[in-house]
Amino acid sequence: MSYLPYAVAAWICLVGIAGVATSRNLIHLAICLTVMQSSSYVLLLSVGYVKHGKAPIFKGTKLGTTAVDPVVQALTLTDIVVSVAVIALILGLALDAHRLSGTVDPDRLADISG
């Protein structure tokens, strides 16, 4: 078993969070959020990976053929769908912010605080 995919997933997650925390542009920030979420795709796929495993389509294959885990692929797909909805909403809000204030910098948007 290789540890590389797990290290990559952790790295992507941390880079994504750092990007979100320091971003000065809402669109850039939304992309950072997608980057952060990609770490869970990498993690899920590497969890379900089996060496020399075939795609999990069992029609016409012999019983006992090694295949990768189909569950994690379904999870990854669902994960992607969920994040698309969130990202679309954030991008929509970024458009509104730009229309109302002429900026997409979250620091300059800070209208309410305390």
Partner: peptide, 25 residues
């Protein structure tokens, strides 16, 4: 105001949701 509130809400909670997703994996 509502745009800023919704942006802060959406981004912070999405981060929470993604942490949760990594935990599930």
């Amino acid at each position: 105001g509502p745009v800023q509130g919704a942006v802060n809400f959406a981004i912070t909670n999405s981060i929470g949701g993604y942490l949760f997703a990594v935990g599930i994996a």
